[in-house]
């Protein structure tokens, strides 16, 4: 007896979801919106996160992320392919965010995303909350607020380096490419930014 099994779903290489980044970019340059839609889906979360960590406000992050994607689409013709689309897109998002932050100077309104459930089970995090600040009833949310307040005190380039390296885990080289500076500059900015943060958050970092 022959059993009829369900046919395996083979991804269509011509469908946007199965395409390589370079092909998607090529299609999007010709005005193929489904291809660009796929590019947006691939990078939306990372772009949003970077902007969110820079602005500490999720409404602003959402608006800026959308604007960055729209701008990238309209500027696709000027994309020469000297770097990856991802790096180029990142650069647009970062420049847009820095311009926005300069306009909004000293008018910070924290509108933070909730910390996810996993944070409460992260041993490092719980150690920080309970062990490092035993005399203070510091909850995760308060720590989150203090951390964001400290971050917004940094200048935009310093904050960006910390966000990209220590929060998002990007390499010095990738950051240098995004920020269009050399690796040495990235390293020195990171060192300075960490020093500043250590000062701002001293009471939470006492050993």
């Amino acid at each position: 007896m022959i059993s009829m099994s369900e046919p395996a779903i083979v991804p269509d290489p011509n469908a946007p979801s199965g395409m390589l980044e370079a092909d998607l970019v090529k299609h999007a340059r010709r005005g193929d919106l489904p291809a660009y839609d796929e590019l947006v889906r691939r990078y939306q979360q990372r772009i949003y996160s970077t902007i969110y960590h820079m602005t500490a406000n999720h409404e602003d992050a959402n608006d800026l992320a959308q604007e960055a994607f729209i701008k990238a689409y309209s500027a696709l013709k000027s994309f020469k392919g000297g770097s990856t689309f991802y790096t180029w897109l990142y650069r647009i998002a970062v420049n847009k965010t820095i311009n926005f932050l300069k306009q909004r100077k000293n008018k910070y309104h924290l509108s933070l995303n909730d910390i996810d459930f996993n944070a409460e089970h992260d041993p490092d995090m719980m150690a920080l909350v309970s062990h490092k600040t035993p005399n203070r009833e510091v909850g995760l949310n308060e720590l989150q607020k203090k951390l964001n307040e400290a971050l917004v005190k940094l200048s935009e380039p310093h904050r960006l380096v910390v966000v990209l390296h220590d929060v998002q885990g990007q390499s010095h080289e990738e950051i240098a490419e995004i920020m269009e500076c050399n690796v040495g500059t990235v390293r020195s900015r990171l060192f300075y930014a960490r020093q500043q943060l250590q000062g701002y958050l001293a009471e939470y970092l006492k050993s």
Binding site: Y48, S49, Y52, H53, H58, L112, N113, D114, I115, D116, N118, A119, D122, D124, M125, A127, L128, K132, L140, L143, Q144, L147, V162, V163, D166, V167, R194, L197, Q198, L201, Y204, L205, S207
Partner: peptide
């Protein structure tokens, strides 16, 4: 900076 780095990792849990 180890302690600071651990603290900064809290940001990774701020997700929509």
């Amino acid at each position: 900076f180890d302690e600071l780095k651990k603290l900064l990792q809290l940001k990774r849990h701020e997700i929509p």
